[in-house]
Design a protein around this nucleic acid. Structure first.
Length: 256
DNA sequence: AGAACAATAT
DNA sequence: GATATTGTTC
């Protein structure tokens, strides 16, 4: 029993608002992974270099408000008759305000017309933050190199708005990186390896061919939806309260 | 048809 | 250099 596919971590079939909230809470990162409130999200040096205006100070109260807002949003989404899964905006829109982000995956209605000028805003390019990359690495390590293919990775990452193409592109580069790292037996990552250097390549990716022939594992993937914060061309962007969930896949060993 | 992958474009 | 897009193959 248990040949369940991996794609059933949608919560909610039963209508547990509390369950959503709990999953969300379980997915929260540990204190050691969060930037202290007293510290700016963007390092002063970097901010200066890119002319990023100073961030508004955030107080504990702000965090509580944001937290409460998220909880109520989760509840609302669950109690709604429809079982739509989308919770938050994946692509934060424009600098000024933007609101109204289009929904993420799934439907782009489109078409037509209005070509003339370009009031068509394209989807901003994805920025692979260390947090996103970490999720990516966790999932890839969990699947094992052989089974880690874009679609699967995308599904397990459970990041709203993340597309298969996004993952495929990143995976391509990541594989090259891993290969390059193996080639140079011992040598830390080069400083130009930005993102990749931020999360060490798990041994499982280097050595053992992890055997996971089938949809065997049935872990509870407590992956609360994680939004993507991105920017326009070359404009960083804000980062709400980064309450991204920690991948809760337990690693481990074992099954064989 | 759709997904993975490698090559190429922005 | 980082991502996106395209082209080819499975």
């Amino acid at each position: 029993m248990g040949e369940e596919a991996l794609d059933d971590y949608d919560l909610g079939c039963g209508g547990g608002d509390e369950e959503r909230v709990m999953e969300w809470e379980m997915g929260l990162p540990g204190a050691d992974e969060l930037t202290p409130l007293s510290q700016p999200l963007v390092p002063p040096g970097l901010a200066a270099a890119f002319r990023i205006p100073p961030e508004p100070g955030r107080t504990l109260l702000d965090v509580h408000r944001a937290s409460a807002a998220t909880v109520s949003r989760l509840r609302r989404a669950g109690s709604s008759s429809s079982s739509a899964v989308s919770s938050f905006p994946a692509w934060s829109g424009g600098a000024g305000g933007g609101g109204a982000a289009a929904s993420a995956r799934g439907m782009m209605d489109e078409a037509d017309s209005s070509v003339g000028g370009g009031s068509n805003s394209k989807r901003p390019r994805l920025v692979w933050t260390p947090q996103l990359h970490k999720r990516f690495v966790d999932v890839v390590a969990h699947l094992g190199i052989k089974n880690a293919v874009p679609k699967m990775i995308m599904q397990l990452m459970n990041v709203e708005g993340l597309t298969r193409e996004n993952v495929a592109s990143h995976l391509q580069k990541y594989r090259l990186y891993v290969k390059r790292m193996q080639g140079l037996s011992n040598e830390g990552p080069s400083p130009s390896d930005h993102i990749f250097a931020s999360t060490p390549v798990p041994h499982s990716l280097v050595h053992e061919p992890q055997q996971v022939p089938a949809p065997y594992y049935h872990h509870h993937v407590a992956a609360a939806p994680m939004g993507i914060i991105s920017g326009h061309g070359h404009q960083y962007h804000q980062n709400g309260y980064g309450a991204y969930p920690q991948a809760a896949y337990h690693h481990g060993h074992a099954d064989k």
